[in-house]
Amino acid sequence: MSYTKRLNKIYAVLIFIFLYAPIAVLILFSFNDSNSTGVLTGFSLKWYRELLSDEATMTALKNTLILAVSSSLLATLIGTAAAVGINKMKNKYLVGAVNTVTNIPMMNPDIVTGISLMLLFVFVGGIVNSSNSLNFWTVLIAHITFNLPYVILNVLPKLRSMDRHLPEAALDLGCTPLQSFFKVELPAIMPGVISGLIMAFTLSLDDFVISYFTVGNGFETLPIRIYSMTKKRVTPDMYALSTLIFIVILALLLLSNFVGERDAAKKVGKKKGAKK
């Protein structure tokens, strides 16, 4: 038994080595002295310095953040409202139709979502005779579109598992429907809304394929900049950037884990208190 257990552990470790090998390589070579990605010549921070002085990359980073924040916020707004509406729908054919259409961007390959939106934008741009039919607004629309299903997917289960009597009670006690939504329903579904927002934000941050087809020349996001750089030979300042992003994400994950555990502890405490 312990023999197979050890074998299992070795196997799991091997898989994790496989998953992290390219990342380890990235981090290692971001501190490399030369611009080789095959031979380590010595330790240096010069790629980090170079990164900070690279204006195009910094602009791309800023653009990516603007896009991710605005698209995730808008998608959360539209998506949460949509979940509320879908939850109230009685006609099962309507619910089925809405759900099917909502899930299309999730099921379709990214490249198809990307080119389908591009065709729409190019066609409309052709009608209004616009010289650049692809720009910040088109990529924003594209990001909201692929973020929406993930927001709805996160919010809808929370609405369904919520006690239906709560909003009714609020109405009976004289709340207007809007008040009841903001004071009773929204707090109850907040965890779903937040996780939808975070998911949308990270998807938007990381998206390359859909942005690649829906963005024009004037607006460059980080993944698109990375793509155009990998067409030639990547310089290790991209490695430096990835290392920094990796560290930030690691810190965020640790933090959210910590907050989550604290919240869980609080909840347990509350429940215990209620029982008393």
């Binding site: 390219p22 990342i23 390589v25 990605t37 390359f208 990375i226 990998t230 990835s242 990796f246 994400i249």
Partner: peptide
């Protein structure tokens, strides 16, 4: 966690390997 790194960079890193 690796999925949070840009996939272009990760794939490029495999080239180096």
């Amino acid at each position: 966690l690796p999925q949070w790194m840009n996939f272009l960079i990760r794939t490029y890193s495999w080239m180096a390997i």
